[in-house]
Amino acid sequence: MLLGPSLGVSAVLFALGVAGVLLRRNAIVIFMCVELMLNAANLAFVALAQSLGVAGQIFVFFVMAVAAAEAAVGLAIILAIYRHKQTVDLQNINLLKG
């Protein structure tokens, strides 16, 4: 059984995704790190589905669908921001400043 190792790898990938989000400033790369985190979660789902039933795999389908939708909308937003600001560097985008 590979449940334990799979969950370990999932944790590593997820932590790397978080570290990436924290480390980068480029919106697109951050986006990719988010995808990485989603995939880490998918790995955990699949590993658990192996012994606990098919529900985990079904979840992965939904995660993929959401990821696809998110990628489409998210990248469209990045495009819009770029058109507006001529940059995708988050350091220069502080519209949320209070």
Partner: peptide, 18 residues
């Protein structure tokens, strides 16, 4: 203090979030 926290820097928000 709350308004100072709102830097507009996403990275900072992410740190807090994590």
């Amino acid at each position: 203090v709350g308004s100072r926290l709102q830097t507009g820097q996403l990275g900072f928000y992410v740190v807090l979030f994590v």
